[in-house]
């Protein structure tokens, strides 16, 4: 990319983010459409939507944006991407079977935000809604889920991940387990303590962690992978590391 092209792209990113934070859906779609005149759909998603979702997540981490803004940005991005990359698009294929669920709690915002971000990134994800340990384990086995993302709100639910981990480890192919939610934000050691393989602190982390898994497992991931081309050779991610990014 030349300096001129990089400058143009930077300008595009800034105006796209402004439109998102202003919750201006028409402007969001118009800026995406304008980019589509110069590039293909996948490049548009990777060049515009993903960097903005990552930026929004980082700004929330730094206290510059509020959760409500992150949520609304994710919803707008999800709708915009669905317009140009429908759920059945074959380019969403060759992804590890992935599912997301809320463990026990009835409040689904965190899961919804991660789900929106993953879909905006082009990942196809099964939404299991609210589950108990038993029903979630059963669904994972039935659907041969390879990556399981679990969101919790309350501390007892976070501690229940330990039971979930034990049940999952009894399956023939235990899934890679990524956790997130408020209790994990207040204790850096909690995810490892309950046996998670990774913890996400915001919805953009969900994208990074899933993309990293795809890289490590030699899967293409969504729309060609973020920084990974599926050529890394099929090594399985190390389980139970409680890795935090």
């Amino acid at each position: 990319m030349t300096n001129v092209e990089a400058g143009v792209m930077d300008q595009e990113l800034r105006s796209f983010e402004s439109a998102l934070l202003a919750l201006d859906r028409q402007a969001v779609e118009a800026r995406l459409d304008r980019l589509l005149e110069r590039t293909d759909r996948i490049a548009a998603v990777e060049g515009l939507v993903i960097p903005i979702l990552e930026s929004v997540g980082e700004r929330w981490e730094r206290g510059e944006l509020a959760l409500s803004q992150v949520y609304m940005c994710g919803r707008l991005c999800e709708r915009a991407v669905d317009r140009i990359l429908p759920p059945a698009d074959p380019r969403r294929s060759d992804q590890p079977p992935t599912a997301i669920a809320v463990l026990e709690d009835h409040h689904l915002l965190g899961k919804r935000m991660v789900y929106s971000a993953l879909r905006a990134r082009g990942f196809e994800v099964k939404d299991y809604g609210r589950r108990t340990v038993a029903s979630l384990t059963e669904a994972v086995e039935t659907d041969a889920i390879e990556v399981l993302m679990v969101s919790v709100l309350m501390l007892p639910s976070a501690l229940r991940v330990r039971d979930l981990r034990q049940r999952l480890d009894e399956l023939p192919r235990p899934p890679h387990l990524i956790v997130g939610g408020a209790p994990f934000l207040f204790d850096d050691e909690l995810a490892a303590a309950v046996g998670a393989d990774a913890v996400g602190r915001n919805s953009a982390d969900g994208i990074s962690l899933l993309a990293a898994y795809c890289d490590a497992a030699g899967r293409d991931g969504a729309s060609g992978g973020s920084g990974g081309n599926g050529a890394s050779g099929g090594s399985e991610p190390a389980p139970h590391t409680g890795r935090q990014i």
């Binding site: 919750l23 409500s68 949520y71 609304m72 919803r75 409040h107 689904l108 915002l109």
Partner: peptide
């Protein structure tokens, strides 16, 4: 309202 209508629906209501 987070408990009355759910967090996601409430955020959308606010905006």
């Amino acid at each position: 309202p987070v408990m009355q209508m759910g967090f996601d629906a409430y955020i959308e209501l606010m905006y």
